[in-house]
């Protein structure tokens, strides 16, 4: 158990953060160039220069390129038809085709976006060249990415992984601990002692509360060392919230274990809750894009609040005033789950 407590956060932080990245690199591209003109060559050289793409191969025909998608050898096919350059010069309008493998929808969308950008750049370059540098009128937009100027995806994922880690510690370990006592029979021995139910439950809460806060500290330290995670907010605010959050999930974990007889049951139910909590919380996807029902359900999801708070405090530098709503909601959940665990624990049957 003890090594698990140390190894779990380390593995999660190192493996998961890198695995869960949404940054696209090395998208494999196959170009079927039927035009073989200077424009098509310009496009290919731009692809080669981009860090996102890896030019896999030049196919001789569209069919051959598509076959490569079928065989999972390439992600994107660019088909440049026979007279793209001459069409462009004659009619000021030419077409090329981009085919993406949309098994992984987000990857397909992203690579399409990157490619569109490259083509747009190409267009601009050609028009500037042809109009011999007369001033081109256009509206240019410039994006500023606040709080994460380099769009470092790890800064987005690290707090999420920490929040999930604390949930696992809080919910799984406590739930397993109490039901294990039932399984090996120590609960029976404890039940015939004069110990009060509330004392017993508090005895189960406190150690995991301490372990949880310790894990948070460990995860923060590791993130700072390994990834140089910015800590812009007040850590005290984060710890105060984490304390309340742990109470809420510990209550849920204990409640699950009072209702279960075996460790298998506890595992099944905890997994169910963990999956729902994580997927709804916005750890990987934006909550704003979810259906209204899911957004409403998130009001009951303590992890949703924690996910918001940990990102806001660490990245945005939010203070206590900014997280009042989340704090209040989580406190309310804790005020329900902990007494629920106490009252549902039965010494007599």
């Amino acid at each position: 158990m003890l090594p698990l407590i140390f190894v779990l956060p380390l593995v999660q932080l190192i493996v998961l953060v890198n695995a869960a990245t949404m940054d696209m690199k090395n998208i494999s591209v196959t170009v079927a160039d039927k035009d073989l003109s200077s424009t098509s060559r310009l496009l290919i050289s731009k692809l080669e220069a981009s860090p996102f793409f890896k030019l896999e191969d030049l196919a001789l025909s569209k069919e051959e390129a598509i076959e490569r998608i079928q065989d999972n050898k390439t992600d994107v096919v660019i088909f440049i038809p026979h007279n793209m350059e001459s069409d462009f010069n004659r009619e000021g309008n030419a077409k090329l085709q981009i085919i993406t493998d949309a098994i992984d929808a987000s990857k397909a969308q992203l690579s399409f976006g990157y490619l569109s950008n490259i083509v747009r750049g190409l267009n601009l370059e050609i028009s500037i060249e042809q109009q011999l540098l007369t001033d081109v009128k256009q509206i240019k937009s410039e994006a500023l990415y606040w709080f994460n100027p380099n769009l470092n995806y790890k800064y987005y994922m690290l707090p999420a992984i920490m929040a999930i880690l604390l949930t696992i510690i809080g919910m799984f370990l406590t739930a397993l601990n109490l039901v294990r006592e039932k399984e090996i029979g120590t609960a029976e021995q404890i039940n015939v002692t004069p110990i009060k139910k509330s004392h017993f439950i508090i005895g189960k809460l406190v150690p995991f509360l301490i372990i949880g806060l310790f894990e948070l500290t460990l995860a923060l330290t590791l993130s700072k060392i390994i990834y140089d995670l910015p800590i812009n907010g007040n850590l005290l605010v984060l710890y105060a919230f984490a304390f309340v959050y742990l109470l809420a999930v510990l209550g849920i974990g204990l409640f699950i274990s009072t209702q279960s007889q075996t460790q298998q049951q506890v595992m099944m139910i905890s997994f169910f809750f963990l999956l729902v909590f994580v997927l709804l919380s916005g750890a990987f996807t934006s909550v704003d894009n979810m259906p209204v029902l899911a957004q409403e359900l998130n009001r009951l999801n303590p992890l949703y609040y924690f996910m918001n708070v940990i990102r806001m405090v660490l990245i945005k530098g939010a203070g206590f005033r900014d997280i009042m709503v989340e704090f209040g909601s989580t406190l309310l959940i804790a005020c329900i789950t902990v007494p629920l665990a106490v009252f549902s624990y039965r010494k007599t049957s």
Binding site: I184, G185, T186, A187, E188, Q189, V192, T193, P194, T348
Partner: peptide, 20 residues
């Protein structure tokens, strides 16, 4: 009066049930 009963009983269950 289970509270008083638990004070005066020493119970040893059939299965060993102390903390391993």
């Amino acid at each position: 009066e289970y509270k008083k009963v638990r004070q005066i009983i020493g119970y040893m269950p059939g299965k060993f049930s102390l903390y391993y």
